[in-house]
Design a protein around this nucleic acid. Structure first.
Lengths: 334, 334
DNA sequence: AAACTTCCTGTAACCGTTCACAAGGGTAAT
DNA sequence: ATTACCCTTGTGAACGGTTACAGGAAGTTT
């Protein structure tokens, strides 16, 4: 591996000059620059990132934590981050967590210890800053992604769950549905609560309230969707639509409907949430709300770069708008 | 940020001694070790990875390239790698590619430039080693994952596509199917070709050959699965089963079946390949072959660590066995 | 012609580790 | 007492860059 000294010798200059050429500083004569560039190419010289980092305190590393990489949910997010970083000289240091506060803490700590220049944290739990060594150095070089607002970070990025809930409910209402079953996620999750609020707002626009629909809370799981769906669809035969807290629940509802001899998109309308990978593969394909995960990744990455380059050090929190994906599981009653 | 010198001063020793304590070398008196440990804790000292890397030529970074992170396929793989690395002090440096030879080359190069200790390369294309600066230094510190064997790396990890093809075909044959439509991936892909071979072997076991089934080649896509499925199912009404090159194709076949009024799992059996995320969400849920992606990630990670620690420098290539996932899309004729 | 700029380049200190080597003190052997 | 050896610790030179500072060579001003 060629070093800067060998480049300097070959070009007949000092290593300082080579360094200046490398950093694109303009205080170097055109003719010299050419000679250095040529030497670099000839030797196939690549700067040693460790040496750089040591001296300059910049690693050009962006650390990313996500709750679980296994979930197909986060692929597009990472992809969005990665795409944004592609033409920069930042690299992506990845730390997954695995659904426990400790593992999230460890993941974050490992990135801090690596001296990343910036941190993108997509966390399921609240991390306690006092448990993290040297986290304070990152106050202005991190963005928190996800539904849980954090107090110790002033750069927040999340999807507007309220708006999403509103979109979902309004879509059903606009299609003429009035008797609706809402299978919501557990209300102690911020996102579930917000979707619920959005739903209420849509109801209000149509002169209705929470009391006019059937609501049940449960985990984001297919099993629960199946059980709750079967149960409530039997009890409330007049209902024409199910608003599911997420696509997993919706998938469970599909199964329940098949069991009850109800044809989705015909006898009963189903609305999902999240546009998970399988949503378009269900039959009939599921109308749902898409979270702009890739867009979020983009935004997170560009925000972090702004922060690193200090383009803009004012704290801000960005809300991204989810989108209605209309497929075939919702029938128009009008 | 505390440095080793401050730790040394606080403990009343030299930095060399601190370094020795850190590296767990035994040439340090118990009493001294205690004092140093205490100082480390008190200062919250974290070794500077850049300085370490500079001096020791070890970054403790494992670089991973995958074709696309967006695909849900690779989440479990990365997860497997990550899980294996979790209790070591290696970190995972991630570089995605985006379905082009150039972007794969760039991704690999960026990891080399970062001086990773080891490389895990999951590539779609053949990279030409001569196009990669300093790749030769990685000859014995990389593992190639995926169907395409490479000549310049002697540590290969892939799934046994031949066995998978065999498994899939045998399953249909065992269930009594004889008139089969095989919607294979393009034969210029190694994996498609191998699956085909496995299929032939299964046919042979039942006294049949390629000529006894209907074969068509096409891209791994739902669209093609739909078109080819509709076309061939109409032409060959006596066929009882479709063997799809992958789950996407199978999903397309489902659509074709619905259009033709054929009930999957009843009138026609469908076998997938890959156990993609949506496979269990199709209706009826798809019987398919699961690639052990997470297991592959595990193996890749532990192989790379063996290589780094030189546990075993003999080139080897490992074949992992895919698994049959029996669901409801294949009917037994016997 | 001296003094002052401007432009370019070199010198050398420094970043925080690791590690080869030297050295000190203690114990055992001669 | 001298020598030899072990155990533990310290000294100082790397590693490969960056950058403040100094300095030399032109060109410009007085």
């Amino acid at each position: 591996m060629a070093t800067i000294i060998q480049v300097a010798e070959l070009a007949g200059v000092s290593k300082a000059t080579v360094s200046r050429v490398l950093s694109g500083s303009q205080l170097v004569a055109e003719e010299t620059k050419l000679r250095v560039d040529h030497a670099i190419k000839q030797l196939g010289y690549r700067p040693n990132p460790a040496a750089r980092a040591l001296k300059s305190n910049r690693t050009n590393l962006i650390g990313v934590v996500i709750p679980t990489i296994e979930s197909p949910f986060f692929g597009p997010f990472i992809g969005g981050v990665h795409a944004m970083l592609a033409n920069t000289d930042f690299s992506l240091l990845f730390a997954g967590a695995s659904v426990s506060p400790q593992s999230e803490r460890r993941a974050v700590q490992s990135l801090i210890d690596r001296q990343c220049d910036g941190l993108i944290l997509f966390l399921d739990f609240q991390v306690n800053p006092s448990e993290l060594q040297d986290i304070d150095r990152y106050q202005d070089r991190m963005v928190m992604v996800g539904p849980n607002p954090s107090t110790f970070c002033n750069h927040q990025l999340s999807v507007d769950n309220l708006y999403g809930g509103y979109l979902a409910a309004k879509h059903l209402l606009q299609k003429g549905h009035r008797k609706i079953i809402f299978l919501s996620g557990e209300p102690h999750f911020d996102d579930a609560r917000q979707r619920m609020q959005g739903c209420e707002r849509a109801l209000a626009e149509f002169g209705l309230s929470k009391k006019d629909i059937v609501i049940k809370f449960g985990p984001y799981s297919e099993e629960w969707g199946y059980e709750a769906g079967r149960d409530l669809l039997q009890k409330h035969k007049d209902c024409t639509a199910v608003l599911a807290g997420d696509d997993e629940i919706a998938a469970g509802v599909y199964t329940a409907c098949r069991e009850l001899g109800l044809q989705v998109g015909e006898d009963i309308s189903v609305m999902g949430y999240d546009d998970m990978f399988f949503a378009r593969h269900l039959y009939p394909s599921l109308t749902t709300i898409a979270q702009p995960m890739e867009e979020m990744g983009n935004q997170a990455a560009s925000a972090i770069m702004d922060l690193i380059y200090q383009v803009d050090t004012i704290g801000r929190s960005t809300l991204l708008r989810p989108k209605l994906i209309e497929r075939q599981s919702v029938k128009s009653l009008i």
